[in-house]
Design a protein around this nucleic acid. Structure first.
Lengths: 192, 192
DNA sequence: GTGCCTACGTGATGTATATCACATTCTGCA
DNA sequence: TGCAGAATGTGATATACATCACGTAGGCAC
């Protein structure tokens, strides 16, 4: 299945577009390939695009003053990613994004998204629901952070995304869970 | 300023509606008054409405198996609140909402929101941006949780909402920060 | 193959915070 | 006004986790 078809089916779950409308929408996306390790958005950058993942795995992360990294999102196929704070508010990036594996994405500029949302009611409908789901996921993760200990969050992550365990190095999983790599290692080996 | 005018100005910041369109939108809201301590949504309830706060302060919270409470949101005037997971997915409430002070709200049913979004492109635009902002706030709080210690999060909360300090009991602030009330008390008295 | 860099494991130690227990102060209201 | 319950302060102890230090194993360049 090619990128266009993947996006089409993804959107069809939420919004009803004619083929012509989808073709018009799709004409604003730009395909892009990245190699493992390549940087998509770097802290301080001007942010113009958001990215729809076709294949591979990216990470969106924040680096604090003590050079500690926190991972906000592992972006897998059919996920959207960007520094949305910077994108929506036209500020410089505080979040960086790079590729954990080789990856193919479709880029959509902020300007074009707003233009299309304005032109096509159903596109606006789609993007409203996409954000709804992101909001719910974010709130769920926040609750999990407050309520569960590290071990429970680790098991929750792996049961949700079993492919992550073999795909990404453990210190990145630790950075997602917000614990040190040492603690994660001990947790993993402690219980059988 | 009455409830209708407050909602009108709130929406006008994001979307352009004619007076007729706004009147039509507003006709779907239902005004409601609550007393301090009154429950709006209780865990296990069927959730049909979301709430736009006109006056007062509500809290949206989660109670875990060990009867510990975590506060997801203090809902202040011009904020929206509900158990959005239950509302969007038509499941039973896992989040409860009650009133910290006497409060006035405008209720909007999920059914009516979707109907209006379908009928009025600008309404869909408004709700997309409302959720965008909620998503960004949630992500920011998640990052703050991972990156900052309790004291920094406490100061961040009070600098963002100074009125909270006198409005809500400290054990609720602790439940928002995700620490015990004892720790919050010690933190507060430790530094000067 | 040699050497280097990255990932990963593991022990020792320090620290922030939870938890339990109890004292004190505040507040609504009968 | 006085009282009960809620809110808050504070000490003692336990614990999860960070941090530092060091060791090992695997992949890749040359």
């Amino acid at each position: 299945m090619d990128a266009k078809e993947i996006l089409k089916q993804h959107i069809a779950k939420t919004a009803t577009l004619t083929d012509e409308q989808f073709d018009y929408l799709f004409s604003h996306f730009k395909a892009q390939s990245y190699k493992k390790g390549q940087v998509v958005i770097s802290e301080g950058d001007k942010v113009d695009n958001e990215y729809f993942v076709i294949s591979g795995c990216l990470k969106a992360f924040f680096i604090n003053d003590e050079i500690k990294m926190y991972i906000l999102q592992f972006a897998m196929p059919t996920w959207w990613t960007s520094d949305y704070g910077a994108l929506y508010n036209h500020t410089r990036a505080t979040i960086s994004i790079d590729c954990i594996t080789d990856a193919e994405v479709l880029c959509l500029s902020n300007h074009d998204r707003e233009k299309i949302c304005n032109e096509l009611h159903q596109a606006e409908h789609f993007f409203r629901w996409r954000t709804n789901r992101g909001y719910l996921a974010s709130q769920k993760r926040l609750l999990s952070f407050m309520n569960n200990d590290t071990k429970a969050r680790y098991e929750e992550l792996l049961s949700l995304y079993p492919q992550l365990y073999n795909l990404v190095p453990k210190h990145l999983i630790a950075a997602y869970l917000g614990v040190s790599r040492e603690t994660l290692s001990r947790l993993y080996h402690a219980h059988k």
